[in-house]
């Protein structure tokens, strides 16, 4: 460690090794608390090393990152368990070092070594790290850091699949409704990413988990009393159902009278934003060519009310698509 502050330039590999040594030290001494000077010195050293990693990966003010240096760094980083140590000990780092570490981990997810994404391979054999990252939403000190890392990790399709198929998916329904706006929104962003990024994987997940997933989605999110929860959920529902790859799921969703009732209630929400998002889902019910009798029944029963509602349903901005959709919905309902 003596060479650390000497003028001899360290290679990217050196920096990774020293970072790992710092982390190992922290790991071994994690039992001993107290502000002993040695420990603080080590922490400062670690902070410097992580910042150095960041500047190699992102470049600094003067220079762009060098591909070769990034490759060396990435190889060395994933050769051993540096990522694991970094994730586990993140809560012990100070705010600035945590932010640097988060950016380093994010960047590493995109680094390729001989056209392979090393991070993805590493995570596939260390899936428990994702469990740790997800549980971060239960600790508000690290939630935003773990959350940001997690969203980078689920860019890998195999990792997203792991999370989707894990028990963690159920926990997101709680995380989304945490009182702290920053954290709840972060969880929402991750949830949305999971359910929209990898089309085929998402379609498969929704098909296999249709019953419990939409039950939770309807009762806990769409019927929530929390404005933000409702607004984000209805937007996400629209994004999911309107995606071509989820066509089968959409058909199933719009064939249910219970779903229709929830959507019709959202059309009457006091929030204009929620009304508009709800309309984008409601129109699918109306446009469905094979409406089940129970759906037709509800639409017919409420026909005059619905038509009256749509007559006065306007959005501030001119939107041809919206107007066309509305016309279509009115036509469909009138024709029933």
């Amino acid at each position: 460690m003596k060479g650390l502050f000497k003028s001899k330039p360290r290679t990217p590999v050196d920096v990774v090794r020293q970072t790992r040594e710092n982390l190992v030290h922290l790991d071994l001494n994690s039992g001993s608390r107290g502000g002993d000077a040695k420990r603080e010195e080590k922490m400062a050293e670690l902070g410097k090393n992580i910042r150095e990693l960041k500047s190699i990966l992102y470049g600094n003010g003067e220079s762009e990152p060098v591909t070769e240096a990034c490759v060396q760094l990435t190889q060395e980083f994933f050769r051993e368990n540096t990522l694991r140590l970094l994730i586990i000990h993140l809560p012990k780092l100070n705010l600035e070092t945590r932010k640097d570490a988060t950016q380093v981990v994010a960047n590493l997810q995109r680094q390729q070594v001989s056209s392979k994404i090393v991070a993805s391979e590493y995570l596939e054999s260390n899936k428990d790290l994702l469990d740790i990252l997800i549980s971060g939403y239960e600790n508000m000190d690290i939630a935003l850091h773990y959350g940001a890392m997690l969203r980078e990790c689920i860019r890998h399709q195999s990792i997203a699949r792991y999370v989707l198929e894990s028990e963690h998916m159920k926990k997101f329904f709680d995380y989304i409704q945490l009182p702290n706006f920053d954290i709840a929104s972060d969880a929402s962003a991750t949830f949305k990413e999971l359910l929209t990024r990898h089309k085929a994987t998402v379609a498969e997940f929704l098909t296999n988990n249709y019953d419990w997933f939409f039950e939770e989605f309807n009762t806990r999110l769409l019927s929530s009393t929390n404005y933000i929860t409702k607004r984000q959920a209805i937007k996400l529902l629209g994004d999911m159902l309107l995606d071509r790859s989820n066509a089968a799921v959409m058909v199933r969703y719009v064939s249910s009278k219970d779903n229709l009732m929830i959507l019709m209630n959202l059309l009457r929400d006091s929030s204009k934003n929620i009304q508009i998002e709800a309309f984008h889902v409601f129109k699918l019910f109306a446009a469905n060519k094979n409406k089940p009798a129970e759906v037709v029944n509800i639409l017919v029963t409420n026909r005059s009310k619905l038509l009256r509602f749509f007559a006065g349903f306007k959005i501030d901005k001119e939107d041809e698509q919206f107007e066309a959709d509305k016309e279509q919905v009115i036509k469909e309902i009138s024709a029933l």
Binding site: G35, E40, A44, P91, K92, L93, N94, L95, D141
Partner: peptide, 8 residues
């Protein structure tokens, strides 16, 4: 490093 304990 002063924040360290606080962060724990």
């Amino acid at each position: 490093m002063l924040q360290l304990l606080a962060l724990l």
